[in-house]
Amino acid sequence: MERTEAELIAAVLKGDAASFEPLIEKYSPRVFATARRYARRESEIEDIVQEVWLKAYQKLGSFRGEAPFEHWLMRLAVRTCYDFLRSHQRNRESAFSDLSEPEDDWLDRFVHQPGAAREDSDAAQQLVQRVLQHLSPPARLVITLLEIEDRSVKEISKLTGWSVPLVKVRAFRARAEMRKILAKIAKDKYL
């Protein structure tokens, strides 16, 4: 018979480390998907997910079981991703003049014929990544959670540990930051 999550967690806390494996198997896809929102290289993504699981194992004693394990784990994952963003800020200052040719073409298409610029094209996805990479860590986290994942301010507050007013302030600043980056792209390209 398959053991429940609560039973697995209780077993791990009693010293049976092997009971942690089914939890890793079950939730790794979600943690990987989250990590891929903030890191591009597979080696970095694997490092993030590995850190999430090691932290989860070490801190399992602090999981009270009041909320689902998945929520607790995702909080840990989001905070680890945020730490990763903060420690990898060096790429933010590069110029936009190095847009690739497909990205350039996609932008041209968008300016002249917005409907023709396809959302599923690789160039569009690369451009999104480029813009997100230029955001500050808090701005990137807020834009990702609020705009892309469509989460509520309250949810973001729980995930990040920030207060609700702080999330709102950071969301406001993040949108301004994003507009500034888009204006810079437009300036570099069209002026």
């Binding site: 998907a33 929102r37 968008f110 569009a124 999104v128 705009e147 892309i148 204006a183 437009a186």
Partner: peptide
């Protein structure tokens, strides 16, 4: 146009969730 571009890029990101 910048506002439209912002919306479009967010739509692109939403339409292409990362692999799990």
């Amino acid at each position: 146009k910048l506002n439209d571009l912002e919306k479009k890029l967010i739509a692109v990101a939403r339409a292409n969730p990362p692999s799990d």
